[in-house]
Design a protein around this nucleic acid. Structure first.
Lengths: 160, 160
DNA sequence: GGTGAAAAAATTTAGAG
DNA sequence: CTCTAAATTTTTTCACC
C-alpha cells in the first residue's frame, strides 16, 4: 500500500463510482494499472465493498435508535452477537467496553416498529437488559474522515 | 418511486458499482431507462452518494469510540453540532433524546489520539460533559437492512 | 510493478413512440 | 416513461517492458 493506493482509496471513499480512467488521471497511472491496484485492494480486504447511500427517510426508515445491550452473566458474547445480526433492523453492531456488551443501531419505519424490535432484542437468549436512545436527527453519518489517506501528498502545506 | 426504483436502489445499496446494464437486466429495463431513473433518484436526494467502504484498521484507524455529548444549559444545539462536524475524526453525529444532546462516533488511529480528540470535544463551546464508550470490535456496520426496498416484488408472485 | 493497444462492454446522448 | 441507435468512454485482457 503506497501513496498511490491511498489516493485511490481516498477518492473511492468519496466517489465509489469513479471510473478507473478517472482514478488513473488523478494519480498519474494508466487505467489498467489502477484496475489492477483496485483489484488487489479488494482482494486484500482493504476495500470491503461499494454501497449507494440512501436517505433512510425516503425509503420508509424514519426512526433510528441506539440500543445498549446488557447480557446476562452467563451469556456467550458470540451467540448474542450472532442473534443481533439475525435481526434485519439492526444496521450496525459494536462490542463495547463498559457495562453494556454491545451497542447496536436499529433503523425502523415507525416507533411502533421500534417497540417490536426492542421486544425482539430483549427476547434474545443471553440479553438481560436493553437501554434505548432514540435518535432525533442524524446530523451526518459515515463521513469519510481523514486518516492519512489523502494526506502525505501535500505534507508541507494545506491542500489547495 | 415505484417497485422498479426500489429494486434498483436495493441493488445499488449492496453493489454500488453495479452497471446500468446489469441493473437493467435485473429489473427488465434498458440501460438508458435505468440511467435516467438513477439520475432522478440522485437528484431527488433518495440516493445521496456512493462510497467505497474501507476496513478502518487497514487504513490506520484502529480505535473507535461512541461519545455522548452533554451540552451546557445555554448552548445552542446547532452551534454544537456544527463544531462537532468540524472535527474530522467525528465520523457520525446524531442528535438524541435523553440527557445527552448528541452521540458521535469518532475514529482515530490510537488511544492516544482518542484522548486528544476527547479534549477537543470538551473544549467545544457549549459542551459540558462527554461520556465515552470505547468500541472493542465492530461486529458489523452499515448493513443494508431491509426496508421494503426488496420486498413487494414477490408479494403476490415471483418478480422474475 | 508498469505500459499501450485492441476487443468487448457500458455509458451517455439523441431522437422518436 | 420507455425504447433503439449511435458516438464516446470505459473495462478488461494481453503481450510486452
Amino acid at each position: 500500500m503506497d501513496q498511490l493506493d491511498r489516493k485511490i482509496i481516498a477518492e473511492l471513499r468519496q466517489n465509489g463510482r469513479a471510473t478507473y480512467a478517472e482514478l488513473g488521471r488523478l494519480v498519474g497511472l494508466s487505467a489498467s494499472s489502477v484496475h489492477e491496484r483496485v483489484g488487489k485492494l479488494e482482494a486484500a480486504g482493504v476495500i470491503t465493498g461499494y454501497h449507494a447511500v440512501v436517505d433512510p427517510r425516503t425509503v420508509g426508515l424514519g426512526v433510528t435508535a441506539l440500543v445498549g445491550i446488557q447480557p446476562t452473566d452467563t451469556a456467550a458474547d458470540e451467540d448474542v452477537a450472532e442473534a443481533l445480526g439475525s435481526l434485519e433492523e439492526v444496521e450496525s453492531c459494536y462490542a463495547v467496553a463498559g457495562d453494556e456488551a454491545f451497542v447496536v443501531k436499529v433503523r425502523v419505519p415507525t416507533v411502533d416498529e421500534l417497540e417490536h424490535t426492542l421486544g425482539r432484542l430483549r427476547r434474545i437468549d443471553g440479553v438481560a437488559r436493553t437501554q434505548t436512545t432514540v435518535v432525533l436527527s442524524t446530523r451526518f453519518e459515515g463521513r469519510p474522515n481523514n486518516t492519512g489517506l489523502d494526506r502525505g501528498t501535500e505534507a508541507g502545506d494545506g491542500g489547495a
